[in-house]
Amino acid sequence: MSGGADVLALARAAREVAAEHAEDVDAAGRFPHEVLDVLRDNGLLGLLVPRDHGGLGGDLRDLVAVTSRIAEGCLSSALVYAMHCQQVDALVRHAGRELRAHLLPRVASGGTYLASITTELGSSGLLTCDQELVPDGEHHVVRREAPVVTGGRHADGFLVTMRAAPDATPRQVSLVYADRDQVEVTAGPPWASLGMRGVENVGLTVSGRVPDGQVLGVPGGFADIAVESFAPVAHLGWSAAWLGAARGAFGELVRRIRRTDGVRADPRSELVRHRVARVRVRLEAVGGYLSGVLDEVLGAHERGSSLAGASCQIHLNTLKVLAAEETYAAANEMVELAGLRAGYLRGSRPPLERLVRDLRSASLNHDDAALLTSSGALCLLEPTVTTLGPDPRSVCR
Rank of each mutant, 00 (worst) to 15 (best):
D156K: 07
L133D: 13
V185I: 14
V227C: 11
L216R: 09
R197A: 04
C129A: 15
G188Q: 13
G188T: 12
L126N: 09
A146K: 06
P166M: 08
A146E: 13
V215R: 15
E228M: 12
L133M: 10
G188R: 14
V206H: 07
T128E: 13
A168D: 09
P135R: 12
D224K: 09
V185N: 11
V148E: 12
E145D: 14
L159K: 00
V206C: 09
V183A: 03
S207F: 04
P166T: 10
V134K: 15
E200G: 00
S174N: 08
D136G: 03
V141K: 11
P211Y: 04
C129Q: 15
R153F: 01
R144H: 10
R144S: 03
D181S: 14
G208M: 04
A187K: 03
L204P: 11
D181Y: 00
R180A: 12
G151Y: 03
L194I: 06
P211A: 05
L159M: 01
G137S: 12
S174W: 06
R171P: 01
D224V: 04
E184F: 02
G137M: 13
I225W: 01
Q214V: 00
G157L: 05
A168W: 06
L194E: 14
G152F: 01
W191A: 13
V148G: 14
R153S: 13
G208N: 08
D156E: 14
P147T: 08
L216A: 08
F158C: 04
